[in-house]
Design a protein around this nucleic acid. Structure first.
Lengths: 175, 175
DNA sequence: AGCGTACTGTTCCTATTCGGAATACCGGAG
DNA sequence: CTCCGGTATTCCGAATAGGAACAGTACGCT
């Protein structure tokens, strides 16, 4: 699955002629992908890139400018085809949510109400911060037609964050 | 992290004297844990149980009744202590959401509006089903004080599902 | 009693993912 | 020219995922 996530980053960037390095891919992932997926570890990005290259889904360009070899990756037409095929096949995958706050809340009885409240406060703070970051992304996207789908995904994320804020409120009220 | 999730299942069950087998633990995880975490693979459950036993956080009881050895696991007081310690140390872990629908929506331009709509429809169906399942759990919990925190977690999950439904609606409207 | 079948319970295998350390090179501020 | 922060890749070990394989058990059916 992660390979498709990386392919999607590459296809989004494909108007850029130069392609991306693994490092840049990691930065893009940190910037957007993490809001609706995860930002893969460096190690995994390079592993996936090797795999994609072995399928000829990406092409690499060595940049032997200095002494150090730097590779820039671009999606190939085969990669585009594979991605399109993947998009077309319906999937029944359901979102996976790993929620450490909920995990701990489950054992609230072992924590005490004040500590639960403190945990909620901390989470709320972190949430506000995350939301701010996503909102910045959303504003960058604006209402340009070319990034309309990215904007929809960002809006989806904002809806999620707002629901989290609501859940925090409700939980607090119930204590 | 998963080991604490398993410990939490064991502590929740600890009024039961007999303890749980790995298999039963998997069932419990399928029933509740998956709504706010993941249901670990069988292989991982047994791996974690071995680890927990090596820390003496769980005790095992061999049941050599027939020919087959069956092990029942119970949390020890050391396990309880470890769990409590873990609960007390504040964490800055943020929820992780892996959202395949959002991942695909990102590339909506490569799918076409009708296919995107179909994907949203399928997701909505699956969502309704999941919500029903969680609601059944929620109703089982009722308003008993002993499971008040579990009920809060269930409510949190329902809030999440409702937000997903909202996000689907909004996305549909924007197409 | 014997049979089929679904369920219980554990182990095993492989692949994927995570998390970050280690290494190395580059460019600019001072 | 030197330090330092950013760029870029590789490497390592561990955790997680996903099921298949295997084996015993319970129960209804004939």
């Amino acid at each position: 699955m992660t390979s498709y996530a990386l392919l999607s980053l590459l296809v989004i960037d494909s108007d850029n002629q130069d392609g991306l390095t693994g490092y840049e891919l990691k930065q893009r992932a940190d910037f957007t992908l993490r809001f609706y997926w995860v930002s893969p570890a460096m190690s995994q990005i390079y592993t996936e890139l090797d795999r994609l290259r072995s399928h000829a889904y990406v092409s690499t360009e060595e940049e032997a400018s200095g002494r150090r070899p730097t590779r820039r990756f671009r999606i190939t037409s085969a990669g585009r085809t594979a991605l399109t095929t993947w998009l077309h096949e319906p999937t029944d995958d359901f979102p996976v949510l790993k929620h450490p706050v909920a995990l701990r809340l489950m054992l609230g009885a072992m924590m005490g109400a004040d500590e639960v409240a403190a945990m909620l406060d901390r989470y709320e703070e972190a949430l506000v911060e995350r939301r701010r970051e996503l909102e910045a992304v959303r504003e960058m996207l604006g209402d340009r037609e070319s990034v309309a789908y990215a904007a929809r995904v960002a809006d989806w994320g904002l809806t999620f964050f707002d629901a989290e804020a609501t859940a925090i409120e409700r939980t607090r009220d119930s204590l």
